[in-house]
Design a protein around this nucleic acid. Structure first.
Lengths: 246, 246
DNA sequence: CACACCCGTTGACCCAAGTCAACCAACATA
DNA sequence: TATGTTGGTTGACTTGGGTCAACGGGTGTG
């Protein structure tokens, strides 16, 4: 637990039209004309240091955030201190959608490494969505994707065994690294075993053991946060026909 | 598993402005002027018989649905047949938001009893959102609420013990019945123990045992689907300070 | 109105994952 | 370069919830 983040805004306006993350981010699928108008929407960037919060549960909701560099986790806390990590977010992904419903955030967003986000004022987004056809549609798709993703996590948590959960997690990470132009088979995780465990509804020891098991079975090679997928098909098979599962 | 639903549209247009569910439904918070315009948006109603699907995973996405009467469950299926119930929906709640992202539905929606929905064509909704200020905002709030709700379920599934999950479930049901003008302490569940179990990531036997345990402890009184909450505060306490939890 | 089937309950037993503990490796800080 | 601290691994043991099985009651269908 670290101190609250000192808000770090640098004056630089970010141009969506020149950002290499368009393919992954809010502007996806919009026309060039629309894209250029979007540049007005995106305000300043904000830097968030590792372990610092982008926002906290209870904070008033003013903006959503597009990750420009780095990565985050979101979590919810119970009164008694139990933590549930609800997601890990990478570049191009949108943070803060949870805040719209009650006009205040319902979870915490914490940077897993030194990161930078584009701040998108929500009232401006609302207004501009009235004007730009493609923006509204794309924004709805982003929210809908989040809902679908969450259903997938419920599937993980509700119906899979420990090793299946970790396999699904690794394949998901691989797929998202690939979409960002990184290797599908080799990457560095940014989160701890405990954070993975919280996300997957497992204790950190169980996560660690599953990693070791996968290594023994020649499915992956792990060394701390560095992971190499040696047999992605094997991992997929593990999810599909593991029987006797709950 | 039953046959696919024969689409049952009756010609009656539904007037949001005259519906007693406004408080709970999409039109919430909109002005009277806006509300009257909304009547154009909502197309026909559709009846869905118990056990029949409103839509299935893979169906092309065309509309979202507001529940006018009855209730539903949504679920996702794994290749090997495992089912995960992702939610239970009651009157005034919106179904189908999962379909926006890929333009096809990603889960199944099944009626738990004979039910009726208002069909809201998505392209019309998009178009009208450009024109009606309050509609866009409200629609975003509905989607955001769904995301927040899903995070709550992840908390359940990832960090709570069996009895805590059931207690949280019962309190949630109670709260939603209350919002609909029904008793907070006495209601009939529409779903089976197996469906509750799937939703909570438990086996039906465990759900049944937890019900019995609660009854022994004087927290509730159960008889089949009929539930009476005798000590809601006790149920709340159970969630908050149950220690030794995972 | 009868009958089958589905649903819910309960018991006995088992196992996957949690708990507790020791230890080691990385990495940050002085 | 030393040194404290955090993160990860592994082992031994425990346990909450899953599994399997038997049974009884409700209810929707013919």
């Amino acid at each position: 637990m670290r101190a609250s983040v000192p808000i770090t805004v640098d004056g630089l306006k970010t141009a969506c039209s020149q950002c290499n993350l368009v393919e992954l981010c809010l502007p996806f699928g919009m026309s060039d004309r629309e894209l250029s108008r979007l540049d007005e929407l995106v305000g300043a960037r904000r830097k968030v240091k590792r372990q610092h919060n982008l926002y906290r549960a209870g904070d008033p909701f003013e903006a959503i955030y597009a990750i420009r560099a780095g990565s985050f986790k979101t979590d919810v806390l119970l009164e008694d201190g139990r933590e549930q990590v609800t997601g890990f977010q990478m570049t191009g992904e949108i943070l803060g959608l949870d805040g719209i419903s009650t006009e205040s955030h319902s979870c915490n967003a914490v940077a897993l490494e030194d990161s930078e986000v584009c701040v998108i004022a929500y009232d401006k987004l609302e207004q501009m969505s009235h004007e730009i056809e493609g923006l509204q549609l794309q924004f709805h798709k982003v929210m809908s994707r989040e809902i679908v993703r969450d259903h997938g996590v419920m599937m993980l948590l509700g119906s899979m065994r420990a090793e299946e959960r970790l396999a699904a997690f690794l394949l998901n990470m691989s797929q998202r690294f690939t979409a960002r132009g990184f290797s599908a088979s080799e990457f560095n995780l940014r989160m701890t075993r405990e954070e993975i465990g919280s996300y997957l509804g497992l204790k950190l020891e169980t996560v660690s053991r599953a990693f070791s098991r996968f290594q023994e079975d020649g499915l992956i090679s792990v060394q701390q946060k560095h992971v190499q997928l040696l047999d992605p098909a094997g991992l997929k098979r593990l999810i599909q026909h593991q029987h006797g599962a709950r």
